[in-house]
Amino acid sequence: MTVAVINSGGANLGSVVHALRRAGAEAMLTADADVIRSADRVILPGVGSAGAAMRALDAAGLVDVIARLEQPVLGICLGLQLLFEHSSEGNVACLGILPGAVERLAVPRQLRLPHMGWNQLDWTAPDDPLCTGLDGSEWFYFVHSYAAPLDQAVAVSTHGQAFAAVVRRGNFAACQFHPEKSGPAGARLLANFLTG
C-alpha cells in the first residue's frame, strides 16, 4: 500500500507520514504529480492558512492533478477546507471538489477560538467506510478556527455551532480533526482509510 502525502508547504506534515507508517503503509511526503497519481491512496494534509496552501499547490501544478484523482483521497484539517469552493480565511478560491464555502466558526463569547482540543463526533452516515469500528464515543483532536458546512458531512461535531467533522463526495473524504494525533481512535480511522 503506497500513500502519497501531498506536500502543501505547511508545518508538521511529518506526523501524518509517521502515523501512516505505524499503520503499515509505505508513506511518502511529495509534491510530484506522477508520484501522487500513481499512489494507492492520497492524503491532502494541511496546517497553516488556506491562502498559503492554495498558492503552494498552484505553484507545484497540483490543483488539477488533485481534482482528477480517482483513488481514495483523504483531506486532513486544512486539507478538508481546501476541498471546498472557497474559504473566507484570506478570501481565497479553493479546489472546488466539494460545493460550499468554509467560514470562520461563530462561537459565543465564553467559548474559545481556535477550537483546540479533544471533541466527539456524531456520525450522520454510519455506513461510511471511515466509520467502521467507530460509534461516536471516541474522541478526536481538533485545532481550527474555520469550518465547512454540513451539506457533505458524514460526521458532525459541535463547538458553538455544528460543523462538518468528516465529509465525503465519492472517492474524496476528509476530516477536520487530526487522526494522526488522535490516539487509538485516529489510528482506527486511518486504518479504515487504508483498507476501505
Binding site: 506526523s15 483532536y141 487530526h178 494522526e180 488522535s182 490516539g183 487509538p184
Partner: peptide, 11 residues
C-alpha cells in the same frame, strides 16, 4: 523531537 514524533500519536 523527531524520536517523540515517530512514536507518539497525541499532540
Amino acid at each position: 523531537v523527531e524520536r517523540v514524533a515517530e512514536t507518539i500519536d497525541i499532540p
